[in-house]
């Protein structure tokens, strides 16, 4: 009897640790592969020159610029809106039927496949909003009704919005209700409760959640396929109404459209490395903030 229990116990820890190891091995393998193959091409020139020829030479500067710009604009849209919406839902609204309905809509939105956001962006932002603006300003040719950085950023913003809201909500929920009530009991207004009690405690969680959701957005390609990403533009203009290049999409192009596979393979690896560094960078910032905040609260 005892023997059987011990065997099951051993087996249990063996099986679970095996799967845990698989994750570690897989991560190490992927990163190792990309590092080994991508590192020697990752020169200063690669980062600061535009691509040449059929993209089998030169660097990836406009692609980095386009990616960074898109991520920034996207955050500018989704972070303030997401935080405001989460604050309203959790701290201001009375948590009745409207709250439950809104929250489940947000959860549903977060689960919508990203390609659907792409189609939504094309239909809503490019055609309806862009077309509407053109009509308003009386333009004959298409000015706003074009695939461009602006609509791409908005599409990405909408994609990350529910993720943001959920992240901020989770952070706000970490603050116990009694603390809010204690604040009200010594005469704080609900805004003062948020500012002086909830926010200082939820700050770390909010920032972490925001950074992680932004980094999640930065890794997406599907939503911008139809709304602004370009196959090849040697120079990134930075204009809101121009098209742009994007790391994730560029990888896809390199992998599938290149006539010369041997030439582009190292470029592919280096580009992947840059993309990974970018998203890992975001992630580690998030992790660091979480760690630092936990330290501060536990001092």
């Amino acid at each position: 009897m005892i023997d059987k229990r011990i065997i099951i116990e051993r087996l249990f820890s063996l099986v679970t640790s095996f799967f845990a190891m698989c994750v570690v091995v897989l991560t190490t393998f992927i990163i190792g592969l990309v590092l080994i193959n991508g590192l020697d091409k990752l020169t200063w020139d690669f980062l600061t020159l535009p691509p040449t020829g059929t993209m089998d030479g030169g660097g990836i500067l406009p692609i980095i610029e386009g990616t960074v710009m898109l991520v920034l604009l996207m955050s500018l849209i989704s972070v303030p809106f997401g935080t405001a919406i989460a604050l309203y839902l959790n701290e201001v609204s009375s948590k009745g039927a409207v709250y439950n309905y809104t929250m489940s809509s947000v959860r549903t939105l977060a689960a919508v496949p990203s390609i659907v956001y792409g189609l939504f962006g094309l239909a809503f932002f490019v055609n309806i909003m862009g077309g509407g603006l053109d009509f308003l300003f009386g333009y004959e040719e298409r000015v706003f009704r074009e695939r461009c950085l602006l609509w791409a950023a908005m599409t990405m913003g909408v994609l990350t919005l529910p993720i943001n809201i959920i992240a901020v909500t989770e952070a706000l929920k970490m603050v116990p209700q009694e603390q809010r009530h204690a604040g009200l009991c010594f005469g704080y207004t609900s805004w003062e409760v948020i500012k002086w009690i909830v926010f200082p405690q939820a700050k770390g969680g909010i920032l972490t959640g925001l950074v992680l959701s932004v980094s999640r957005g930065a890794g997406e390609v599907a939503p911008i396929l139809f709304v602004g990403v370009a196959y090849f533009i040697p120079n990134f203009s930075g204009e809101l109404l121009d098209q742009f290049m994007y790391l994730g999409y560029h990888l896809y192009v390199l992998a599938t459209q290149s006539p010369n596979v041997d030439e582009t393979l190292p470029i592919q690896y280096s580009t992947t490395l840059v993309l990974l560094m970018l998203t890992f960078g975001f992630n580690s910032v998030g992790q660091y903030m979480r760690w630092k905040n936990r330290k501060k609260l536990q001092r």
């Binding site: 116990p176 009694e178 603390q179 009530h181 204690a182 009991c185 009690i197 200082p200 405690q201 501060k296 609260l297 001092r299």
Partner: peptide, 10 residues
């Protein structure tokens, strides 16, 4: 004053 003490963390 509440039932359980409520110190503010941090």
């Amino acid at each position: 004053v509440m039932q359980k003490p409520v110190p503010f963390s941090g």
